[in-house]
Simulated assay, not measured.
Amino acid sequence: MHQMISVFLFLTVISGTVIVISSENWFVIWLGLELSTLALIPILCSNFSPRNVEATIKYFLVQAFSAALLLNSALIQAWFSGSWSVLVPMESFPSLCLSVALAFKLGLAPCHFWLPDVLQGLPFLQGLIIATWQKIAPLFLLFYFNQLSFSYFIVIAGLISILVGGWGGLNQTQARKILAFSSIGNMGWIVVTSAFSLGTAAMMLLIYLIINTAIFLILDFLGIFTLGHLNNTSQLSPVSITLIILTILSLGGLPPLTGFILKFSSLYSLISNGFILFSSIMIIGSLLSLFFYLRIAFNTTLILFPQHLISLTAWRNSASTKPLMAKTWLISTFSVLSILAIPLTVPLYINI
């Protein structure tokens, strides 16, 4: 794809998200979502391999269905209330339709089935856009929605997502599928928290974007697609594997890494409002996800992950797993923030 076309498409994706965030009209919001999705489709299938095209088509069909459901809920709401404004409280049926549409866009359980398969079929950089940037607009819509009415469907979907994200990643060996289930679990944390504290949820979203961006960029740079590749990288560059382990454990919320403030602030918000049962379910889901994060660290540093004998020496002739010695400032910045940014998040947490 020509460089100017790629820049134009990226700017269109960004402008679609900005339109969604800045608008208070349901029709304009729908236009922004469609603009962002249609501009992203050529970017996703730029490699034009069969698996890549398949993942792009699946993503397009899911997003088209969720956008149609969102427009349908907006039309029904406009029929009931006579207004297209986001600030008007929604009726029960359009509220349910909107909740399902946002659950599909965010990959919340039980509407999560598309996300692992789509991320597995895309390169890391395209998957990074879906796992980070494309979550911003639906989450801001969800924040608007939670300000007006409390949706039990969204809260229950968030709790199920935390459990599904932890349980689904236990037996995965593909790095992109592990990141997909991790994204499902973290979206559940943010969604549940947004029902009780929007400020805390916004801070959690920022931390999630930083950590996830660092992990995707590092794995793409080192060419790590499976857990077996982590073993090869550990033999080639201990510094690189240490950085990967710390960022992944930060994503799991292990103290004293940056991701710990994400889980701590969410639990503090829920317990302060008296939702002990919800907090218990979230802790159980967090322990499940932390288990497979620690399993990755254990298999990487202490034992060899089960793999074919030939792959044990493949790294010697591989150019994709070069040491992380002269990386760009972008990966360095996101890596440092994802590991050591708790002192920066504490003032934000105190203000909230």
Rank of each mutant, 00 (worst) to 15 (best):
P110M: 06
I283D: 00
K177S: 12
A137S: 15
L304Q: 10
F275R: 01
E24R: 15
Q63K: 08
G169Y: 01
G158T: 12
Q147H: 15
I76L: 11
W79I: 05
G121M: 10
Q120T: 10
A137H: 02
N171W: 12
K177F: 09
S266A: 06
L70K: 00
A201E: 01
T213S: 15
F8G: 13
F221I: 09
Y208K: 05
A180K: 07
I261Y: 03
T333V: 12
F225R: 14
G274E: 06
I129H: 03
G168M: 12
S36E: 07
C45A: 07
S66N: 06
L198V: 14
G158P: 08
A297G: 11
L96A: 06
E34L: 03
Y293L: 02
R316L: 06
L75A: 14
Y152M: 14
A55W: 02
N232I: 06
D220V: 07
I156V: 11
L294S: 02
L128V: 09
T328R: 03
R295P: 07
I284V: 05
N212I: 12
G185H: 03
M204W: 10
I76G: 01
K322I: 03
W79Q: 09
S92M: 08
F27Y: 11
W79S: 10
D220P: 12
T233N: 07
S183T: 13
L312Y: 02
S269Y: 11
T200K: 14
N25L: 09
I215E: 00
I154G: 12
F48C: 04
F48W: 03
I21E: 06
P347T: 05
I14R: 13
I76H: 13
L254Q: 01
F221Y: 15
S83G: 06
W189Q: 13
I19V: 13
V346F: 08
I156R: 09
P256L: 15
C45V: 13
